[in-house]
Amino acid sequence: MSAFRITASILALATCSAAVAQDSSDPIKLTLHDWTGQLITTQLMGEVLEEAGLSVEYVQADYLAQFAGLETGDLHVAMEMWETTGRDAMDAATATGNVVNVGPTGMKAKEEWWYPTYMKERCPGLPNWEALKEPACAEAFSTAETAPKGRYLGGPVTWGGFDDERVEALDLPFEVIHAGTDAALFAELESAIQREAPVLLWVYAPHWAPAKYDGEWVEFPEYTAECYTDPAWGMNADMAYDCGKPFGEIWKVAWAGVQDKWPTAYSAVDAFTISNDDMGAMITEVDLNGKSVDDVVADWMSANEDTWKTWIN
């Protein structure tokens, strides 16, 4: 072998080693929240990063308050920021320059007030939100604790969503009761449907609930950014949030230092994509069929090896 070829080979090996060395041996911290889909996407990403030889640590974090940790670099990657509830917090964090939006997950988010179809007989005019203003309709959704006002079961307070503000801005005769957990929210839905009891609650997609049960989302005035920021916008000239929730992407976000410290991880998070159908099927396996998140993620990894390997190659 010529001296030139030997030198070229040594340089190539050195370059390759340098590229590998770019990824820190420190654990990359992925945030965990309190709903099944996010636990799945996060563990799936973590398993892929471990396949790439990276160290991963999972950290339980508040959905909105996590941005304080992402801005300082104490947390590194959050796999699900929903356009419907997290956009304001995400935009404020990215505006600092310390957090970056790593692009969409491929899933499309919808979160809104939802009711089973049998409630339409008790509240004529649905899905138009104005039907909820009728005293008879509010009473149809009431419970002993809220009567004569209707009861709306919101998600955990940490999810945001501005439901309390929406009720006030649209002058709805409803009380907002927040479920303590994701599991409690949907346990109440299942119980109500089995009894054909009144229920109006926060339902989101991708999720098994709107696929399993026959129902509809309430149709509020269409969201615009001004609705959330300008009280003068919309039908209530004195209050913001007089509209429905935004629909759209589910985003991935990261501490801005991830790309330099763990370039392989950053590229993998950027490449990650999954469909609503695939995610809905995995959530169903966990929430309805009793499988563990570990097993569901392992099954997906085994069946989709050709997909996830492209994220790290």
Rank of each mutant, 00 (worst) to 15 (best):
G248F: 02
K261S: 05
Y266F: 15
V297M: 03
A268C: 09
D277P: 01
Q259A: 15
V286M: 03
W262E: 01
S302I: 06
V286L: 06
S275I: 12
Y266D: 15
Q259P: 00
E285F: 12
W255S: 14
S267E: 11
N289Y: 13
D278W: 06
V293K: 15
D294N: 11
A271L: 07
D299F: 02
V269F: 01
M282F: 13
D295W: 07
W255M: 05
G248A: 03
M301A: 05
V293G: 10
E285H: 14
E285T: 06
I274V: 10
V258K: 00
M279F: 08
W262L: 05
S267Y: 00
K261R: 14
A268L: 06
G280F: 10
D295S: 07
A271I: 05
T273F: 12
M279S: 02
F272Q: 09
N276I: 08
N289T: 09
D299E: 13
G257P: 02
F272V: 09
W255K: 02
V293I: 14
I283S: 05
E285D: 04
V253G: 12
L288M: 13
D287F: 10
A281P: 04
T284A: 12
W255R: 03
A268Y: 00
S275Y: 11
A268D: 06
F272K: 03
A271T: 06
D295E: 11
M301D: 13
G280N: 10
V297E: 07
V293M: 08
T284V: 05
A265D: 03
S302E: 13
I250Y: 06
I274N: 00
T273H: 08
A268V: 07
E285G: 04
L288R: 15
A281Y: 10
Y266R: 10
